[in-house]
Simulated assay, not measured.
Amino acid sequence: MRGSLPISRRLVYKLRQVGNGTLGSAKIKVLILVCIALTILAISNRNRDGSSSFMGWTGDVDRSSSPRGRYSIVMNTWKRYDLLKKSISHYASCPRLDSVHIVWSEPDPPSDLLKRYLNHVVLLNSRKDQLVELVFDVNKEDSLNNRFKEIKDLKMDAVFSIDDDVIFPCSSVEFAFTVWQSAPDTMVGYVPRMHWVDQKKGNDKYKYGGWWSVWWTGTYSMVLSKAAFFHKKYLKLYTDEMPATIKEYITKNRNCEDIAMSFLVANATSSPPIWVKGKIFEAGSTGISSLGGHGERRTECVNKFVDEFGRMPLLPTNMKAVDSRNSWFW
Rank of each mutant, 00 (worst) to 15 (best):
I274K: 00
S143F: 07
V173N: 04
T299C: 10
E106I: 08
I288F: 09
A227Y: 06
F54E: 00
N145V: 11
K207S: 10
N45P: 03
E133C: 04
V30Y: 15
S4H: 15
S270H: 14
N45K: 14
I32G: 05
R10M: 05
L41C: 14
D164A: 13
P192W: 01
S93D: 08
V214R: 00
G21S: 15
W216P: 00
S93Q: 13
M156S: 15
F148C: 09
P313A: 07
T186E: 04
F309H: 05
A183L: 11
N318F: 15
E300H: 09
T245M: 01
F136G: 03
E106Y: 07
T251F: 01
I36Q: 12
S126C: 10
L5C: 08
W212L: 13
E141H: 09
G293Q: 02
I167Q: 09
N146E: 08
S65W: 05
D163E: 12
V302A: 07
H195E: 03
G284E: 06
D108A: 13
S172N: 10
V197Q: 13
K232A: 06
D323S: 07
M312E: 02
N76P: 06
A260K: 06
D185G: 13
H231Y: 03
G210F: 07
I36E: 12
K79M: 00
S262H: 03
L291G: 01
F305I: 11
K149G: 02
F136V: 06
I43S: 09
V166H: 06
V276S: 04
H120N: 12
G278M: 05
S72K: 05
E241S: 15
A227W: 04
T22G: 15
C170T: 10
R46D: 08
H195Y: 01
E106A: 11
S4P: 01
E174M: 12
W211A: 10
N119E: 10
S53Y: 09
M261R: 01
I288K: 01
T239W: 08
V166P: 00
A42T: 12
V132D: 05
